Computed example of a mutant assay.
Amino acid sequence: MIELVKISENISRSFNGKETVETLQAVNYRIVENGVEKGHVTVGQGSFNMNVYSMTSTVEETKALVEKMFNALSDVSDE
């Protein structure tokens, strides 16, 4: 099972004259599979940057995993 484990958040704080406004800019996660770190991902406003390592799969298996991930993301955004 692959899971994302949050390690940090980047927040900007501004003052609009009356109150402090905090905006979440990005969240950094470790990608963990069965207790082993496999990479990391940063999710920002309208973007993400993912770096995966320690995979033992073939090129074809890795491509299929990436396609499955994007299909799952597309299914969620269609709801």
Rank of each mutant, 00 (worst) to 15 (best):
K18S: 04
V66H: 15
K18C: 02
V21Y: 00
G35A: 10
V36T: 08
E60W: 11
E79F: 04
L4H: 02
E61F: 05
L4V: 03
G17R: 00
L4W: 06
L73M: 09
E33G: 03
S47M: 10
K18R: 06
G39E: 12
L73S: 03
G17N: 00
N10A: 01
Q45E: 07
A26G: 04
N51C: 11
K38S: 05
N16R: 01
E61M: 09
F15Y: 12
N28L: 06
A64F: 10
E79D: 10
T56G: 14
H40W: 13
I11L: 03
H40D: 13
S74G: 10
A26R: 10
F15D: 02
S12T: 03
Q25K: 00
V66R: 15
E67N: 15
K63T: 14
I2S: 06
L73K: 01
V43I: 15
L24H: 00
L24S: 00
V43S: 09
R13G: 00
D75T: 09
T20Q: 01
R30D: 13
S74T: 09
L73G: 05
H40M: 12
K6V: 02
Q25P: 00
M55F: 14
S14N: 08
I31F: 05
E19N: 08
E60L: 12
N10V: 02
G44H: 03
A26E: 12
E60C: 11
K18D: 01
G39S: 12
N51K: 14
S77Q: 14
N28D: 13
D78I: 02
N71H: 12
F70K: 03
S47W: 12
K18V: 02
V27S: 06
G44F: 08
T20G: 01
T56I: 10
E67S: 09
S8K: 13
M1Q: 07
V27H: 01
V76L: 11
S77F: 15
R30T: 04
L24G: 00
M69Y: 07
I31T: 08
S57T: 13
L24N: 00
F48S: 11
K38C: 08
R30A: 03
I11P: 04
G39V: 10
S47T: 10
D78T: 04
E9D: 11
K63G: 06
K68Y: 04
K63S: 09
V52G: 02
E60R: 12
G17P: 00
M50Y: 09
V32I: 14
K6P: 07
Y29M: 03
E22H: 00
V66L: 15
